[in-house]
Lab assay of single mutants.
Amino acid sequence: MSIQHFRVALIPFFAAFCLPVFAHPETLVKVKDAEDQLGARVGYIELDLNSGKILESFRPEERFPMMSTFKVLLCGAVLSRVDAGQEQLGRRIHYSQNDLVKYSPVTEKHLTDGMTVRELCSAAITMSDNTAANLLLTTIGGPKELTAFLHNMGDHVTRLDRWEPELNEAIPNDERDTTMPAAMATTLRKLLTGELLTLASRQQLIDWMEADKVAGPLLRSALPAGWFIADKSGAGERGSRGIIAALGPDGKPSRIVVIYTTGSQATMDERNRQIAEIGASLIKHW
């Protein structure tokens, strides 16, 4: 068994979910400061990975656009189908120029040979490839089937209604394609530690997140040497930005962190900087 497989195998399969305990108010002060700096709502939650206990939260039950963070949930649904014998990671999917949508850096290079389901999930999570996400959504039956998958695992909040790139529209008070920080954190924890997926599929999902190549300016920029992070970022219209992550010291994950913001006029660089500063405070007061 590899070190990575050993790491995931040791994560307990508890489903406990406790009331908020504000253990590190310094980080919450930074979250509130980020709201002021961005002129926007910021949602934040931090869960203990083992117990599910809420360590910190701010606007945990307010809706925020999911943006590309939904791609982790999508690949979780795909892996669930693989575990059930309904899908194969090695199955090759062919597509055409007409299937390509905005921001598809991986799929646009494989119009001739197509891509396997495994490769599409990797592209969707590590590079946030939008066409890969749409092709994967098609394999499970579309956005409503992803919502149904989430409902079946106990998440009655998170919903996907549209395809890429329309799902990033982020209209105020529009519940389409949204989640809440508390719901997303709990669902991510179930996918990474629960019995919904096999150990091999849980390991595959966290491996894809660990290999994320487009979230460098966010939490990763604040991470000390030797820390572990597996994450997925998202960006949308109307100043929307977000990240979901499993992270921790000593090379293994010990907490789930979810950060969303929407409604800002700030630049992407400024949104990234504020999320990175929240991450720096989190690590400082770990």
Rank of each mutant, 00 (worst) to 15 (best):
68 S>C: 00
268 M>D: 07
165 P>V: 10
240 S>F: 02
82 V>S: 08
149 F>A: 07
252 K>Q: 11
12 P>T: 13
178 T>M: 02
33 D>G: 13
283 I>M: 13
145 E>G: 14
15 A>G: 14
149 F>Y: 15
221 S>L: 11
247 L>T: 07
117 V>L: 15
144 K>T: 12
87 E>H: 04
2 S>C: 08
40 A>V: 06
57 S>D: 10
190 K>N: 14
269 D>R: 11
63 R>V: 08
198 T>R: 10
42 V>G: 01
27 T>S: 05
180 M>S: 15
271 R>G: 10
143 P>G: 04
233 S>Y: 00
15 A>S: 15
3 I>L: 14
160 L>H: 05
183 A>H: 11
183 A>P: 08
97 Q>P: 15
244 I>V: 14
15 A>R: 00
9 A>E: 05
266 A>R: 12
275 I>L: 08
135 L>N: 02
222 A>S: 13
159 R>V: 06
173 N>I: 12
200 A>E: 15
17 F>C: 08
90 G>R: 08
86 Q>L: 09
196 L>Q: 15
264 S>G: 14
15 A>D: 01
94 H>R: 11
14 F>V: 10
67 M>R: 01
79 L>I: 04
181 P>S: 03
162 R>T: 08
125 I>M: 08
196 L>V: 13
212 D>V: 03
121 C>G: 04
263 G>V: 04
82 V>F: 07
93 I>L: 10
19 L>R: 05
121 C>L: 05
89 L>G: 05
78 V>E: 02
167 L>M: 11
73 L>G: 06
112 T>N: 13
175 E>N: 13
223 L>D: 01
207 D>E: 15
186 T>Q: 14
60 P>S: 11
140 I>K: 01
4 Q>L: 10
286 W>T: 00
165 P>G: 06
73 L>R: 00
224 P>C: 04
14 F>G: 06
178 T>S: 13
240 S>E: 08
62 E>R: 05
142 G>D: 03
228 F>L: 07
158 T>I: 02
216 G>E: 08
172 P>Q: 12
112 T>R: 15
252 K>A: 13
125 I>C: 06
253 P>N: 09
214 V>G: 05
222 A>L: 08
173 N>K: 15
150 L>V: 07
187 T>N: 09
179 T>M: 00
183 A>R: 10
73 L>W: 02
238 R>N: 14
225 A>N: 13
217 P>W: 05
51 S>G: 12
79 L>E: 01
51 S>R: 10
178 T>E: 01
24 H>S: 15
92 R>A: 08
50 N>S: 14
133 A>D: 00
68 S>A: 00
222 A>F: 09
144 K>Q: 12
256 I>D: 00
238 R>T: 11
119 E>K: 04
172 P>Y: 11
41 R>W: 06
38 L>F: 11
220 R>H: 03
238 R>E: 09
239 G>D: 02
25 P>A: 06
232 K>E: 00
215 A>L: 02
226 G>E: 13
264 S>M: 05
142 G>A: 03
263 G>T: 06
235 A>E: 02
285 H>R: 12
134 N>T: 03
88 Q>Y: 15
69 T>A: 01
147 T>D: 09
225 A>G: 14
87 E>S: 05
251 G>Q: 15
145 E>A: 15
224 P>N: 04
217 P>Q: 09
99 D>V: 12
251 G>D: 10
129 D>H: 00
77 A>T: 10
92 R>D: 05
11 I>G: 07
173 N>V: 11
145 E>D: 12
221 S>T: 14
211 A>V: 07
238 R>Q: 13
59 R>P: 07
24 H>P: 12
178 T>H: 01
101 V>H: 07
152 N>S: 13
203 Q>L: 10
53 K>R: 15
16 A>T: 09
9 A>G: 13
254 S>T: 15
66 M>R: 00
163 W>S: 10
214 V>D: 02
158 T>S: 10
22 F>C: 14
223 L>R: 05
225 A>C: 15
137 L>A: 05
268 M>L: 10
66 M>W: 05
91 R>G: 04
189 R>I: 06
24 H>V: 12
131 T>L: 05
216 G>V: 08
154 G>T: 03
173 N>G: 10
55 L>E: 08
201 S>Y: 05
213 K>S: 10
129 D>E: 00
181 P>E: 00
154 G>S: 09
188 L>I: 13
55 L>H: 09
12 P>V: 09
197 L>V: 04
149 F>R: 06
240 S>A: 13
143 P>S: 05
131 T>P: 02
235 A>R: 02
235 A>V: 05
203 Q>A: 11
79 L>W: 01
147 T>A: 08
30 K>N: 06
219 L>T: 03
6 F>G: 06
240 S>V: 11
48 D>N: 05
224 P>R: 06
92 R>T: 15
250 D>A: 12
163 W>C: 13
230 A>V: 05
17 F>G: 08
10 L>T: 09
170 A>P: 09
217 P>L: 09
204 Q>L: 12
95 Y>S: 02
202 R>V: 09
62 E>D: 13
170 A>E: 08
124 A>D: 00
137 L>T: 08
217 P>G: 09
178 T>N: 02
234 G>C: 05
11 I>R: 03
244 I>T: 07
131 T>A: 12
218 L>A: 03
1 M>I: 08
160 L>F: 10
27 T>A: 06
244 I>R: 00
256 I>S: 01
100 L>S: 04
55 L>A: 07
48 D>A: 08
75 C>S: 07
83 D>V: 02
30 K>G: 04
160 L>C: 13
284 K>M: 10
93 I>F: 05
177 D>T: 00
279 G>A: 11
66 M>L: 15
221 S>E: 12
184 M>A: 05
90 G>A: 13
251 G>I: 07
170 A>H: 11
87 E>L: 13
175 E>T: 11
60 P>C: 09
35 E>D: 04
166 E>R: 14
237 E>G: 15
252 K>N: 07
235 A>D: 02
13 F>G: 06
136 L>F: 00
127 M>R: 10
198 T>I: 05
34 A>T: 12
